[in-house]
Structures are given as C-alpha cells and as structure tokens.
Design a binder for these strands. Structure first.
Lengths: 115, 115
DNA sequence: CAGTATCCCCAGAGATACTG
DNA sequence: CAGTATCTCTGGGGATACTG
C-alpha cells in the first residue's frame, strides 16, 4: 500500500518531476505528434520524452493514438483527467508571468514562445 | 540572461523540484519553526529542508525571522508573493484528492494527515 | 534547536547508436 | 518517424557527525 502524507504529495507523484508538467502543458492545448512535442518541450531528450509520455499514459492523463502507416504516425492527446489540469497549469503560467515581471529586471530574463 | 520557453518554466524554476511545493504548502497555512517543518514534511532530511528554505527565501517566497535567544528559535513564514500561491496549491491538493479516489482501489493507497 | 560540513551513492537524465 | 537499447555520468539528495 502506498502512503502519502497529504493530497499534494499525490499530485506531485503524478505530475511532478522535470518534464511532466511541460509535456502536459502543450498537450492540453491540443493533440500533438511525437516530433512536435520534441520541438516544443525545449531541451528534452528523445528518451525522456518517451519515458514521460509512457508514465502520463499509465497514470491515465494522456492517450496514445497510433496510425498504422509508413512512416509511423503517433498522436498524443489528453484524457478528461489530464485536461482537468488545464486551469491549474494555466494559473501556474500566470503566476510565472507575474513573477518574471516582478522579480527580474528587463534584460535579465527572456521568454521565447515556441508555439 | 536566463532564457525560458514559456511562463510555466519560470514557475517550475521557482517552486519545482522535490520539496519546495510541500514546504510552501505547510508554510502557507501559517508560520512554522524549523523543527515543525521537519516533522510535517515527511522524510525530508535536515540538509534538504534548510537548502529548500534558503532557496525559497532567496526567491522572495518566504521570510526568515530569527529570535536572539538560547536555544535558538527561528520562524519561517510566507511573503505576500509566497502566499499568492495558496489558491494554486489548494487546487493541486483537490486534484490529488480526486485522483486518489478515482484511480486507486481502497487499500491501495492511504493518506495520513500530519497537521 | 538551528544550522553547517562531509562523504557518498544512485536514480534521473544525457548521449549515441540502432531498428521497424 | 517513432521508439528501443546501452552506456555513461552528474548532481540531487541521503546519512552522519559536528558546532554555536
């Protein structure tokens, strides 16, 4: 039996870590192919991308749709459960935007949007 | 100059990682002494607790108040900036609670509340 | 009690090459 | 294009001992 010491720990178990939040962030905006995600989630390696996707899929947050064709095509999308994180991730973004304005002088920080 | 590729990355830079969210979670409920935090944030080591507190302080999310007495007494509390994460952490908890109900059979998981 | 200083380890993550 | 398989390695993090 798995033991947690508050609900936040449960959440962090599912979307914590270095990449899960970011992958979800882009998938929540709409279905993406593997290559697109690789481009969007900057600096993620092939290995970590696939690994992250597998874990999110196992935990029921995303869905993997495979097209039987050559060359292969795979599309990832959020489940309802995954999509239910949209308001939270949205808030986290807003907070980060504010923080960037408040706590950095112009020129100390830049944000490059990829999508 | 630090470069980010979306606002979420900024947020994760500040409250990402293994412990920051949990430490904030408890501090948002009210000021705490070092020892209390050590007890509440289950399994955190002395080293990681102090390190986490220092980083949160540096980033302006918490405040450290030291009482000049023997034995030493130190109290940590949130700044306004830190407190502004309250609704988000709250949402993350709710989400985790729901997830625990939906995705685990009774007996597969337990949540022990420490405060 | 709060905090520092070390030593040490291993899982998470990077890099590269390969396959269907 | 999507994914697997290895190999490697770093630094996040754990354990312990010590100080004011």
């Amino acid at each position: 039996m798995k033991t947690f010491f508050c609900e936040l720990e449960v959440t962090l178990e599912v979307i914590g870590g270095k990449w899960k939040g970011l992958v979800l962030y882009y998938l929540i905006k709409g279905p993406k192919r593997t290559g697109e995600l690789k481009r969007l989630v900057h600096n993620i390696s092939q290995k970590m991308l696939i690994q992250t996707l597998r874990e999110l899929e196992t935990d029921g947050l995303i869905r993997r749709k495979m097209y039987n064709q050559v060359p292969p095509k795979v599309e990832y999308s959020t489940t309802e459960l995954g999509q239910s994180l949209e308001p939270i991730l949205s808030s986290l973004c807003d907070w980060g935007g504010n923080y960037a304005e408040q706590s950095f002088a112009p020129g100390e920080i830049e944000i490059l949007y990829l999508d």
